[in-house]
Simulated scan of single mutants.
Amino acid sequence: MIFRFSFLLMLCLPTFALAQDRTPSHCVALANAAPGLEYVTLATLPEVTAETVYLHYIAHASFLIRSHGALNIVTDYTGFTGTLPFVPDVITMNHAHDSHWTNFVDPAIPHPLKGWGPFGEGIDHKLELDEVLIRNVSTDIRSPYGGVEPKGNSIFVFEMAGLCIGHLGHLHHEPDAGQYAALGRVDVVMAPVDGGYTLDQPTMIAILKRLKSSIVIPMHWFSEAALRDFLRGMADEFSIVEVGGPSLTVAMDKLPSRPTIMVLRPAYIDVAR
C-alpha cells in the first residue's frame, strides 16, 4: 500500500512541512488561494513522477486525476470507482443526471465539490491543495421538469504540473464569451460526445475546435457509432490516437505538437490493476 504519510507523522510534523509548491499554470491568474492540506490515501495506485499527471477513465464521465504528490481527484463521482478501496481527496459532481453525482458521499472524503448550488445561483470553487488548484465555471442545464436551470452544471478546471485540465461535465450549451474567458487556455479537456443527452455533435465539435486543446479525451459516449461520428467530425483538425486502455500520463513538455484526440477505454479501478 502507498501511504501519503503515516498518521503519526501527520501529528508530529509542523504544518509548514506539509506544503508543496504548485507549478503555475497559464490558464488564468487567480488570487486569494487558500493553503491546502495533505490526506492519507489507503490505496495501491501508480506512482506519478514530478510535473506529470495521471488520468484514468473510470466510467461514463468519471475520471481519476492523480497528481505527482499523490492527491487523488475523481470527477462526476457516483460513489463507485471499482473494487480497489481508496478514499479520494477530492470529488466533483454535477446533477443533470444521477449518473454524475451521489447523495451518499463517504464522509471520509475531505473535499466533496458540488457543481451546483441553490436553484439558479450556481456555486464558486477555488480550492488549492498543495500542487493542485481546482476551480469551476458554472453553465446552465436543461431542467428535468422542462425549462432551464441556470448555473446547474460546472466545468471543473484542475491546474497542476503547469497544465490546465478541464472537465466539461454535463454541458448543455456552448459557453458564452465570459465563460470562455473564465476557462482560459485548457491543455487537456474531457468532453461529452454522446450527441444528444448533452450537446449535439456539431456544437460540441465547434466548442472543441475553438478551445484548441492539445489533448481531447472523449467521454460520455453510449455507442461506438457515436464515438466514430465524433472522431470523423474532428479528424480534419485533430490527430486521433487509440490509446488502447483506460489510462494516460500527461506532462506540459510532452504535449503533442498537433491537437490530438486520445481515445481511452473506460475501466473501473480494480484490485488486480
Results as ranks from 00 to 15, higher is better:
Thr15Pro: 01
Thr15Met: 08
Phe16Lys: 09
Phe16Gly: 06
Phe16Met: 10
Phe16Gln: 12
Phe16Arg: 10
Phe16Asn: 10
Ala17Phe: 15
Leu18Pro: 00
Ala19Ser: 10
Asp21Leu: 11
Asp21Lys: 13
Asp21Tyr: 05
Asp21Ser: 14
Arg22Lys: 09
Arg22Pro: 01
Thr23Gly: 00
His26Arg: 05
His26Met: 01
Cys27Arg: 11
Cys27Glu: 10
Cys27Trp: 02
Val28Thr: 11
Val28Gly: 03
Val28Gln: 07
Ala29Ile: 07
Ala29Cys: 05
Ala29Glu: 09
Leu30Ile: 04
Leu30Cys: 01
Ala31Lys: 13
Asn32Gly: 14
Asn32Val: 04
Ala33Ile: 00
Ala33Pro: 00
Ala34Arg: 05
Ala34Leu: 04
Gly36Trp: 04
Gly36Ser: 02
Gly36Asn: 03
Gly36Met: 02
Gly36Leu: 03
Leu37Glu: 07
Leu37Met: 05
Glu38Asn: 07
Glu38Cys: 05
Glu38Gln: 11
Tyr39Pro: 02
Tyr39Val: 04
Tyr39Asn: 09
Val40Cys: 08
Leu42Phe: 13
Leu42Trp: 09
Leu42Asn: 14
Ala43Gln: 03
Thr44Val: 07
Thr44Cys: 07
Pro46Ser: 00
Pro46Phe: 02
Glu47Cys: 03
Glu47Phe: 10
Val48Cys: 12
Val48Gln: 08
Val48Glu: 05
Val48Ile: 13
Thr49Ser: 15
Thr49His: 12
Thr49Gln: 14
Ala50Ile: 08
Ala50Tyr: 11
Ala50Trp: 04
Glu51Arg: 15
Thr52Val: 00
Thr52Gly: 00
Thr52Lys: 15
Thr52Tyr: 00
Thr52Leu: 00
Val53Phe: 02
Val53Met: 06
Val53Gln: 01
Tyr54Pro: 05
Tyr54His: 15
Tyr54Lys: 05
Leu55Phe: 12
Leu55Cys: 04
Leu55Ala: 03
Leu55Met: 11
His56Trp: 14
Tyr57Val: 00
Ile58Arg: 09
Ile58Asn: 12
Ala59Trp: 06
Ala59Gln: 13
His60Ser: 10
His60Asn: 15
Ala61Gly: 14
Ala61Lys: 09
Ser62Phe: 11
Phe63Thr: 06
Phe63Trp: 09
Leu64Trp: 12
Ile65Leu: 15
Ile65Met: 08
Ile65Arg: 03
Arg66Trp: 02
Arg66Gln: 15
Arg66Thr: 01
Ser67Gln: 06
Ser67Asn: 06
His68Phe: 15
Gly69Thr: 12
Gly69Gln: 11
